[in-house]
Design a protein around this nucleic acid. Structure first.
Lengths: 347, 347
DNA sequence: TTGCCGCTTGTTATCGATAACGTAGCCGCA
DNA sequence: TGCGGCTACGTTATCGATAACAAGCGGCAA
């Protein structure tokens, strides 16, 4: 039997990714020199660096960041949680965040809560195991344990897409209630008075609940007939839900002349259902969405909606996190982003 | 000045996440005992475990997997690359993959290539730095360096959404060309003879190119008039591109009676453009999509499309990876998934 | 009483990298 | 010639966990 040596690659039955020590051995230098070759602005002879890089390319060596991170105490990534990725708003926010972070050499670890606070808690814990350097959350309602875990992690946290009363740390968002209120006022100004609302049937989608609350407040302010609300389906509220909810709305209140939907997806479903029923939009009924999805810009007719700069929410969250990493401060940044009513063809 | 001690939490200006050693000290045991308390089926007194758990909850300790992984040589990560997440097909595949992997305690590291092979290469390298235990790719065309890096990583790789001639390792997919060919035959059987194609203007979207190739092959087989192709816009081909491409198609070949679109998104854009022009679908022109997105099920009229079980692609990829991790084998799994033509209202 | 076994816990080495410090060699200048 | 300073490396300790082995302890049978 042949003698096994620690440095003998043949000894292991399973081949593995090569390490910095392998590179060092082949280059005839120490591991530390390889480490230096890999980072810019470090004292190393150009010739040595070139020799090391040649070997790195040849054997396909890729440094192990988890090992490096353990030593340098930096994981190099940020955790981000969104309710679902199957929603262009949240996808845009993730994109904006990625943009800013990757420019700073940080990676994004993305998780989906499926609109569940329990899943959010479980995800937070799973991600904290990887020691992210910062966290972006969607919404401001979290379990007690989630808050406890985040506090004890001692890393910057940004809550987004909401306007929390008691932020954990930083915040980038807006009031969903105010935005929906503005849409109701807009419809009222255009002459609609029998305004209904279509939303989801879950209390865990706090943005959805806030939008309903905003609708109710506006209807009360304007002395419009109240109660024209269909809450139906579990988040994420789909196109299908929107179509079915419209049928229910019309069945319950046949004289409804406008409907505010919790999102563009449900608005699009309602629109398709109107086509199917031969209802003219907006002549017979007006439809408003929320979110300014691609869909709403190119549907027929084009959807009136509330536009939120989703990608900017991501970018600003990224900037705040980067700033907090550079210079931790006791102050929480509260960054409100604007929303606007986009009047198109459905109202 | 007070004396600093290594175990003194006050010595550092910046508070950090607590470690296993902190828990051990508070519980009056060794770190190893805490480690054992954290994993099921390990020899530890129930009473000791309970005491340790109490402390863990109190101080909000979360174990550091990167450190643990270094020691146990398992990162707990699987890397997955998709062209874009703003596409319900790829989102579904990611979802299916997550489903299977998270049940096995593995996390997904998701990246978007934006349909660029260079970005794919850069992402692969970035992800390999975190030592994933397996990789899922979309498509079968990669740079030489991507292949080199993956080979040297010695981890299982699954290529998806394609039917490669020379797979790196495993594969779960189907032939995009065959699927599109089937759609053309379907349209022909329903009596359409002036069939056009709308696709993207990039060669890096290999699935798009394969679909175009399938269309061309079918048209040749059936002796239909050829050349009715508009390739327009860069991936991801959006709703907007579809609408504009339809205008171009009609301008170039006014007697086109059916159009095969590279995806449901472009098909939907084409459909909206028809509404705008007052063209009846399918009476004046038939429209077919690809992918069976939510959109196509609920648009008006409902879109005829090619259905691919995207979530199943993710699930099977996950199973193959798990299997390969348990028992590495020399054999590459080649798993073909079925596609089907869904006849709805637009053809 | 002795010896063995199983249960529970501790000790030491290690994973792959980096921080911090040490040192050899070279150059220039007094 | 001698010394300081710089460059280009190497050495050692360390990050936070786990693997592997060692060991204390009580119980029970011989």
């Amino acid at each position: 039997m042949r003698v096994m040596d620690k440095n003998d690659k043949l000894m292991s039955d399973k081949p593995t990714q090569s390490t910095m020590a392998d590179v060092a051995r082949l280059a005839g230098v120490s591991a530390m020199t390889v480490s230096r070759a890999l980072r810019p602005n470090s004292a190393i002879a150009a010739q040595t660096r070139a020799r090391i890089f040649k070997i790195i390319e040849d054997i396909g060596y890729v440094p192990d960041m988890t090992a490096g991170g353990l030593s340098s105490r930096k994981s190099g990534f940020i955790a981000a949680l969104v309710p679902t990725i199957n929603n262009s708003n949240f996808a845009d926010t993730a994109r904006g965040l990625t943009e800013v972070l990757s420019a700073a050499g940080l990676q994004l670890l993305l998780g989906y809560t499926d609109y569940s606070l329990e899943r959010e808690e479980a995800l937070i814990e799973a991600m904290l195991r990887r020691r992210p350097e910062g966290v972006m959350l969607t919404g401001s309602i979290h379990t007690e344990r989630t808050r406890h875990l985040l506090k004890n992690a001692h890393i910057p946290v940004v809550e987004t897409w909401d306007s929390p009363n008691d932020p954990i740390n930083h915040m980038v968002g807006f009031s969903n209630a105010e935005a929906t209120k503005a849409m109701v006022h807009h419809l009222h100004a255009r002459g609609y008075h029998e305004i209904g609302f279509i939303g989801g049937g879950s209390t865990e989608d706090t943005r959805g609940s806030d939008r309903l609350a905003g609708y109710l407040a506006a209807v009360a302010e304007l002395n419009l007939p109240a109660g024209r609300v269909i809450t139906y389906g579990l988040p994420p509220i789909s196109i299908e839900h929107g179509g079915e909810a419209l049928s229910m709305l019309i069945a319950a209140w046949p004289n409804v002349d406008a409907v505010v939907c919790v999102s563009d997806l449900s608005a699009f479903g309602a629109l398709s259902e109107c086509h199917r029923r031969g209802l003219k939009v907006p002549q017979n009924i007006a439809i408003a969405g929320f979110g300014d999805f691609d869909l709403s810009r190119w549907s027929w007719p084009k959807l009136t909606t509330v536009s939120v700069n989703a990608i900017e929410i991501g970018r600003r969250s990224g900037s705040i996190l980067l700033e907090a990493l550079k210079a931790p401060s006791a102050y929480n940044q509260i960054d409100r982003v604007a929303f606007s009513i986009i009047q198109r063809e459905t109202t």
